[in-house]
């Protein structure tokens, strides 16, 4: 079943569609949550939450790319849970990922206003546009999906060392990019 058909199923309030979505994207979504939280139990719970949110949001929403839509949803839910202190202590691959991202920024406390977040998101999208598709994929696998270096290396058929090196270079590029746009890094 295509994304479009699954969305149509949700629009038609067909509950069986949820089962199909879970079967199609369940492992992908669980993986994102588990990468971030290092907890299969939480990942399973968040998968259900994600499906519920999709059920509630569609309609009126009609995402063109259901996989990305669900991925974003579970990532947000995972981050919210991660920010809970107990979850943060446990940490998953995200702990290392966030440490790496700390290299790109000052680490100083800044207000997390909606404006700041919007500007940052715009800057990140602009940065991604400057990367080659290959590097962009690498960056997103690591910093969006919180995949481990080893798993990325296996996915893209490169050595873990080469992946780590490439990511290091991309982080430096990102730091420069953010600096040039006036972010305090």
């Amino acid at each position: 079943m295509t994304d479009r058909e699954m969305v149509q199923g949700l629009l038609a309030r067909n509950e069986a569609t949820l089962h199909i979505i879970s079967k199609t994207y369940g492992s992908y979504l669980r993986r994102i949550a588990d990468n971030i939280l290092n907890s299969p139990e939480d990942a399973e719970e968040l998968l259900n939450d994600t499906l519920l949110k999709a059920w509630e949001a569609i309609p009126p929403a009609e995402p063109e790319n259901l996989r990305v839509y669900l991925g974003k949803t579970i990532r947000n839910l995972s981050i919210n849970l991660l920010r809970n202190q107990a979850a943060a202590k446990r940490g998953g691959e995200s702990r290392q990922v966030i440490e790496e991202l700390n290299e790109c920024v000052s680490g100083g406390i800044e207000p997390e206003g909606a404006l700041q977040e919007k500007e940052l998101a715009e800057a990140l999208n602009a940065f991604l546009a400057t990367l080659s598709p290959e590097k962009r994929r690498l960056f997103l696998l690591r910093y969006w999906q919180a995949e481990s270096i080893d798993s990325i290396a296996s996915e893209i058929h490169k050595r873990p060392g080469a992946v780590a090196m490439a990511l290091s270079r991309i982080r430096k590029q990102l730091k420069r990019h953010l600096e040039e746009r006036g972010f305090e890094v």
Binding site: R67, V68, Y69, L101, S106, L120, N125
Partner: peptide, 24 residues
């Protein structure tokens, strides 16, 4: 700014880029 803020902001990455990162 913290790495966590950056990590969170990445949630707003454009869909087209995330589509690219699907397994090939």
């Amino acid at each position: 700014m913290t790495g966590m803020q950056l990590f969170k902001a990445l949630s707003q990455v454009e869909d087209k880029y995330l589509s690219e990162s699907a397994p090939k």
